[in-house]
């Protein structure tokens, strides 16, 4: 149809419709090529949109509430009160001399950021349908935006954490300088899994119902209220008359980087010890893999997002 490539400039063109085949030729079929470097660059160029969308969600959340943004602080403080009341009576697991509310709260803080990212970010493409079908900026902005909004509420939850430190008259140790690194690993892990899940949920809505169940199960599979040391670091494995000792903490960290992250957060902030490096390295490698795979799958599947949203 190259006679039409001018699109009728100057003169009227009426193409022969019967000459158009029923299907396009095999060699012009469109294949969505993913160039990771370019995609990452493009995402960086659109970072303002992430801020703006996060601002939208944050502002809209507290509009028309009499106390406004104060709720951002009030609700985690309320959670904390429930927490202290319950866990100062119930002591379920050994916490190594650390007051249990403090011990558990550090775990909950890490977990709640991760789970809210999955929960909100996983359905971010669906809840932004209207924008998804009408705007052109990179699609990963939607799940990443919810991660930023959650990060903000998570940061605010540090206030009750500080209150806990005051209540139990403790100071975070100087080993806390590890915290920024732990945050980076957790964000990478959360981002990878959120991108992966959000791009699958949009194609398979059943997962939307299953996701909350998986998340509520996940809190027990992750050392949030129990200590990471429950996972053996020398597990005997019998293979062909040999016995190999496997460090299951490292294997676990590879699949669920959150375990070593929570453990390291407790070790550094509460116990004043260095993190256990083996599992933490495994967690770093795992998180990086999740991020790369998640981003890749997302970019691969995004070709159909606007059509099926």
């Amino acid at each position: 149809m190259s006679d039409l490539s001018l699109g009728g400039r100057g003169t009227l063109v009426t193409p022969d419709l019967s000459a158009i085949p029923a299907e396009p030729a095999e060699d012009i079929l469109y294949h969505h090529r993913v160039r990771m470097r370019q995609a990452a660059k493009n995402l960086w160029a659109h970072r303002e949109i992430i801020y703006t969308l996060a601002e939208r969600d944050f502002r809209a959340q507290y509009k028309q509430a009499a106390l406004g943004a104060a709720w951002a602080v009030l609700s985690p403080v309320a959670t904390l009160l429930i927490f202290v009341v319950v866990f100062s009576r119930v002591k379920a697991y050994p916490s190594g001399g650390i007051p249990y509310p403090l011990y558990a709260f550090v775990g909950i803080l890490c977990w709640s950021y991760f789970s809210s990212c999955l929960g909100n970010g996983g359905t971010a493409l669906l809840s932004n349908k209207a924008l998804l079908a009408k705007t052109q900026f990179p699609r990963e902005c939607f799940p990443l935006e919810t991660m930023l909004t959650n990060a903000l509420s998570s940061l605010i939850s540090w206030i009750p954490l500080a209150i806990l430190f005051v209540i139990y008259q403790r100071l975070p140790s100087w080993e806390s300088i590890w915290v920024p690194y732990l945050i980076v690993v957790e964000v990478a892990f959360a981002a990878g899994l959120t991108l992966l899940i959000s791009s699958i949920i949009i194609q398979m809505r059943d997962l939307q119902q299953v996701l909350p169940i998986i998340i509520s199960l996940g809190i027990f599979l992750t050392p949030v209220i129990w200590p990471f040391s429950y996972i053996p670091n020398r597990y005997p494995l019998h293979l062909l008359h040999h016995t190999i000792h496997v460090n299951l903490q490292i294997v676990y960290g590879l699949f669920n980087p959150l375990g070593p992250i929570i453990n390291s957060a407790r070790l550094t902030v509460l116990h004043g010890q260095p993190p256990s490096f083996g599992p933490l390295i495994a967690a770093t490698v795992g998180a990086a893999l999740y991020l790369v795979v998640g981003f890749r799958v997302f970019k691969r599947l995004e070709v159909s997002f606007a059509d099926i949203a």
Binding site: E48, I49, T52, L53, E55, R56, R59, A60, K63, Q64, A130, L131, A133, K134, T135, Q136, F137
Partner: peptide, 25 residues
């Protein structure tokens, strides 16, 4: 691309906030 006039507007935000939101979008 102006594919829809109002789909980028958020009902709970003010006009001013929406100018920034929709402009960015």
């Amino acid at each position: 691309a102006l594919l829809s006039v109002t789909s980028g507007l958020h009902p709970d935000l003010t006009g001013r906030e929406n100018v920034f939101l929709y402009g960015a979008v």
